[in-house]
């Protein structure tokens, strides 16, 4: 097994002629949490979408377990063990909670262990277990976010890409969410976490990269959370 699980090597992504991410390099090792913060339009979501194969690269390469996935389709990347929880959750509101979870199983390379993982996410997010027959659109915002994460987790990912999981959630719900993320990390799933809440992210992640206008401008460790100057830079990109 490669020491690096996910590697972005001088990645650039453009929307037409407008560059969204420029020459970005970063690595995620197995079981590691890497944060990505920055203001709106900094290129955070684009980076995650590019890893997932939704956006094509203008330059550079993305490797997963040492193999280039830059030209692969999203469904193939999912089956390799990469799972994205997109911004805005993108659960299926007109499907039952159960069906949303069943869709997550499609990303597995094997059915083996599926029941165990389903059991685990139901324990991790009890609210979901209690409403498996309900339409997902009827869940609260926090529960929908939990469902989106649970759906990604049942695909048995090696790395979880999270795009603004705390967006629009009440502070107490955010705390619950980060408790769950800690448990996910402890199970050995690597996490690449895109967030607006810089302080929370810097404290939680093994290291946090700050993006500004598509450039990586700064990398912070958990110890920097008490460094006001560096944190200010993290907030304002």
């Amino acid at each position: 097994m490669s020491r690096v699980l996910l590697e972005l090597d001088h990645v650039s992504v453009s929307y037409g002629s407008v560059p969204a991410v420029r020459d970005l390099s970063l690595e995620v090792a197995p079981g590691e949490v890497v944060g990505l913060v920055g203001s709106n339009g900094a290129g955070k979501s684009t980076t995650l979408a590019a890893i997932m194969g939704v956006h094509r690269l203008a330059a550079g390469d993305i490797k997963f377990e040492g193999i280039s996935i830059a030209k692969e389709q999203p469904d193939a990347i999912a089956r390799r063990g990469v799972a994205l929880v997109p911004e805005g959750r993108h659960i299926y509101p007109d499907f039952t909670v159960e069906d949303n979870l069943r869709l997550g199983l499609l990303g597995r390379s094997t059915r083996e262990g599926a029941d165990r993982d389903l059991e685990w996410v139901r324990r991790l997010f009890p609210a979901i277990a209690d409403s498996s027959k309900r339409m997902a659109g009827l869940l609260s915002g926090g529960q929908q976010q939990q469902l989106a994460i649970a759906r990604a987790l049942v695909s048995d990912p090696r790395v979880l890409l999270l795009d603004e999981p705390s967006l629009g959630l009440a502070p107490s719900v955010v705390d619950t969410l980060f408790d769950a993320l800690a448990e996910i990390r402890d199970k050995g799933v690597a996490i690449l976490l895109v967030e607006q809440r810089a302080q929370l992210t810097v404290a939680f992640a093994d290291r946090t990269h700050v993006l500004r206008n598509g450039d990586l401008v700064l990398t912070l460790g958990p110890e920097d959370v008490v460094d006001t100057d560096r944190m200010t830079q993290a907030y304002f990109g």
Binding site: A78, R79, P86, R108
Partner: peptide, 13 residues
């Protein structure tokens, strides 16, 4: 219902 999300989840388009 949502083609992009389906592909992200592993649906073979």
């Amino acid at each position: 219902a949502d083609f992009t999300t389906a592909r992200i989840l592993g649906v073979r388009a």
